[in-house]
Design a protein around this nucleic acid. Structure first.
Lengths: 234, 234
DNA sequence: TGTATTTTATTTGTCGACAAGAATATTTGC
DNA sequence: GCAAATATTCTTGTCGACAAATAAAATACA
């Protein structure tokens, strides 16, 4: 386990323990500080966060039901592997959710929603300008999550966020193995999407989201094809 | 809390405790033995199932992350309410998932998948013949879950099952307040869907699933419109 | 030397206990 | 008699401990 997990433990309020562990673990998993397959030692974690195993176990149950960790009965729990064999199911669901959430956002957006979306787009744009891949990945996720929120269908939002998080792990793998220049194209595509949502043009939103999704899928597949080695074995 | 929760506790194997509590609670919630809004008392549950609070709490965390229960910090956890105000988001997601899963089933089904689906349809048909509404609701869920499995996209399957379960709760409310005759039409619609999946006719599968979903949505809305009282307040 | 078997050690799943917070009951002040 | 303040009861969140299950090490054996 990585040293980055060690942090100065702030004064914890009662009832915040599970949430605290959950968020730390989640961040570390999505940032690949804890790479897929790494075992999670409850006792070590308990010592490092200076709390007992109970809240840690509850956080692990929560992570497990989101698919981020896998618990083998009576055996160690580990960070879930990325299923490279069935990537197409991931891309398929991702594309559909891009479309559906963007459509709904165009239908149901309020002005406040728009402002939040623009806010995230600004941060995204900054990250691309700064050629900061990791920040770009995170802000891209937030941008699309905000669009989903504007669509106001929590069923879609929760699935989409799960997919975005899974994608975040994959992108981290590839962006860290190749240091490409980050394409300005993404920024303009985002701008187009915002325009469609603002105009409440559902058809345009759908089309743009679909293209954007294809774009991203293709990008990931290009990375994968270029990468001879398999970064994490299954 | 209801007496049906009391059962002769079988000899439990170590490591099965959480699973055991989880399944009992889940069943009781979906069958409305524990109606929306009912508080869940950890201590009572622990006594009745003759185990400690630890595995019960872990089961509750799992249920909470699936949206079946709601935990207020430092306060009692309760069975989640059904959000009647935003039913349209539910219907929207439901319809989409009906279509997507049935399409994929038509694409990817194996002969084994088909056999499993037919099996569930047989049980469903029996329930309709017997005018057994509760069994019909349960077997209908299993039928469509089997179709989703045949589509082999776990992201869709998990969302769809969540929606089907939520729908199961709603249908229970209305089928128990009105004792309608169960429409034979559902059985023939299922048969048509099976035929399309067998023929791997994606377009037909999509269309039939869409109609089937509309059918069900309309049925629920009719029930609701007829029901003056609001069965469970929010 | 390599394999099978026993022993040891580690880790998980569960338990009972306890303290902080919230809800309820009781007392006090007006 | 009613409202505010206090005390009490109850529930939750967390802890340390222990036993079953597994993994690792040590030993016996071919």
């Amino acid at each position: 386990m990585d040293k980055k997990l060690i942090r100065p433990v702030p004064e914890r309020k009662r009832g915040q323990g599970v949430k605290y562990v959950y968020e730390i673990l989640r961040d570390n998993i999505l940032d690949l500080v804890l790479p897929p397959g790494s075992p999670i030692d409850e006792i070590q974690l308990a010592e490092r966060l200076s709390m007992s195993r109970t809240p840690i176990r509850e956080a692990l149950v929560k992570l497990a039901s989101e698919g981020l960790v896998t618990t083998l009965p009576n055996r160690s729990t580990m960070v879930s592997n990325i299923d490279f064999l069935n990537l197409h199911t991931f891309f398929d669901a991702m594309t559909l959710m891009y479309r559906v959430t963007t459509r709904l956002a165009a239908e149901n957006r309020t002005d406040d929603d728009l402002e939040i979306i623009r806010d995230h787009q600004l941060k995204f744009s900054d990250a691309v300008q700064a050629q900061d891949a990791l920040t770009m990945i995170a802000t891209n996720r937030d941008f699309h999550a905000a669009i989903a929120e504007a669509g106001k269908n929590p069923y879609y939002t929760s699935l989409f966020c799960r997919l975005l998080d899974e994608g975040r792990r994959m992108l981290r793998i590839y962006y860290s193995s190749f240091d490409d220049q980050l394409p300005q194209r993404y920024v303009t595509e985002h701008d187009d999407i915002i325009a469609a949502i603002e105009a409440q043009d559902v058809a345009a939103a759908d089309k743009l989201a679909s293209q954007h999704a294809d774009q991203i899928v293709q990008q990931i597949q290009t990375f994968m094809a270029r990468d001879r080695r398999r970064p994490i074995d299954l």
